[in-house]
Design a protein around this nucleic acid. Sequence first.
DNA 1: TGCCAGGCCCTCTTTAGGGCCTT
Length: 203
Amino acid sequence: MEVVAVIDFETTGLSPAQGDRATEVAAVIVEDGRVVDRYQSLMNAGVRIPAFIEALTGISNAMVRSAPPAGEVMREVSDFVGDIPIVAHNASFDAKFWDAELARVQRSRRQEFVCSLLLSRRLFPLAPSHKLGALVEYAQLPVAGRYHRALADAEMAASLLLRLEEELRQRHRVPQVSVELLRRIQRVPKAQLQKCLAAFTRA
DNA sequence: TGCCAGGCCCTCTTTAGGGCCTT
């Protein structure tokens, strides 16, 4: 598989359109089946973190207050990622914060997102849940740290991506997994998965 | 005033509703 960046945001809520902002971002670079580089930073967007989010993430208002400005962090992380494909767990969530925070520093996204949640629903249909934590347990992946911290979640999503790649190679006999294949799989109706994979499988 | 996310996906569907995921 080509080089990809797996990212994760912690935020003050679910919707940038409702005023929610990022509080932490992490990106790990996956190359040749392993993580080869990492970026992580808290970020100060100048907004208050609700108490239940503090409890969920362990990221407090005091921690964010002493963090670098959000714009500075977004410039750094977007430079770190560059134009390589981005993967995230429930990518529609991370993509909307990525776009919203980049827009605040007059930048725009240069690549499509790949979603490990959509891939997992198709490739691990028997998993009891497709939450990141449940998939880590289901696939017996290492717990990289505290859930709901950006770097730990990005590392675990990267492990999940590599496990999905292995599933495609071993169970589905796809000789060469590409980002293009992942993009097709995450959009294909479940009933058409086998037909989709057949086009990428050598006899 | 009152409301407040949104995309995916299943089904007792398609003239819709509700659960799953992300924080």
